[in-house]
Amino acid sequence: MDQELLNLFGHARISDRQLDELIGLAKGLTADGLVNQSEAEFLQAWLAANVAVSGDKTLGLLYRRVAEMLSDGVLDADEQNDLLDTLSFFSSDRIEVGEIQKPSSLPYTRPAPALTFPDVRFCFTGTFEFGSRRDCEAAVADRGGVAGSLTAETHFLVVGSYATESWKHSSFGNKISKAVDMQLKGLPIAIVAENHWASYL
C-alpha cells in the first residue's frame, strides 16, 4: 500500500477517534442541562486543537459556531441554549453525528407555505447549517423582515436542520411546543424547516 493511502487511512482513524471524543465531551457538558462560559471555553480549546490535526467537517462546523459565540467574550443566555441544543444533537444516541434530522418527526406545517420577507416576523430555534441564529436573523432583516422571540405576532417559526428525535425534551423544543399551542388557538403561525426557509432567500 502506498504512502498516500496509508495517510488517508490514518487520517480517517484520527477523525473517528476525535468524533468519539466529541460525543463523550458533549454528553458530559450537557448532563446538567446547561453549558456555561467555562465549559464553552474548554470546548473551544479542545476543538481548536483537534481541528488543526483533523480537518473533519463536523469538528470544523462546531468550532466555528463556538468561536462565534465566544467572539465577544461572553456566552449569553441565547448562546447557552444554542450550544446546549447543538451539543445535545452531537451526543444523541439515536442518530449519527452529522445526520440531518428527518422532517417527519417534527410538526412542520403541511403543505409548507410560501415565504415572503418584507414586514414578516420570523423566529428561529435549533442549530442551523446556514450559520448562527444571528446570521439567520440578519438574512431576514436584509430582506425587509423582522426576526426575534416567539410572540403572537410571529408568522414563521424556523427550525434548524440539526435537531434530535427527542425535540420535545430539548430547550429548542419549548418553542416548537409553544408554536403548536398557538396554532391550536387559531394564530396564523407556520412551523417550517431550515431548508424550506433557505430556499426562499
Rank of each mutant, 00 (worst) to 15 (best):
R65W: 12
S54W: 08
Q101E: 04
S104K: 03
V158N: 01
S166P: 00
F122Y: 15
L83F: 08
L115H: 03
V120G: 12
T116D: 04
S149K: 10
D85W: 01
A147E: 04
E41C: 11
Q37L: 10
A31S: 10
Q183M: 12
L59H: 12
G148C: 08
G145Y: 03
P188V: 05
E4Y: 10
D119R: 14
E165H: 09
Q18I: 11
A67C: 14
A67P: 07
I176K: 09
S91D: 01
S170P: 00
T86G: 07
S91L: 07
L184S: 14
S104T: 03
S149R: 08
A138E: 14
D20M: 05
E4C: 00
V66Q: 06
E153P: 01
K185Y: 06
T164N: 06
S38G: 02
A48G: 01
G33A: 12
R13Q: 14
F156P: 03
D76P: 04
E21T: 12
N7D: 15
Y162G: 10
G55Y: 07
D56N: 15
L59E: 09
L5V: 11
D142K: 04
E137Y: 00
L61G: 11
A141M: 08
T151K: 10
G148E: 04
L75V: 13
A193T: 00
I23G: 01
V159T: 11
S199E: 02
K175N: 10
K168V: 08
L29C: 04
T151H: 07
P107C: 11
L157K: 03
D78P: 00
D142H: 01
K27M: 08
R121Q: 06
E21N: 15
F90S: 01
E41H: 10
F156C: 01
P111Q: 12
D16I: 14
E39P: 10
A77K: 12
L157N: 03
G73W: 09
E4I: 13
L22W: 05
R17N: 14
I189T: 07
T58G: 14
W197F: 14
G144N: 08
A40M: 07
T151D: 05
E99N: 02
N7W: 08
I176V: 15
K185S: 13
L150Y: 13
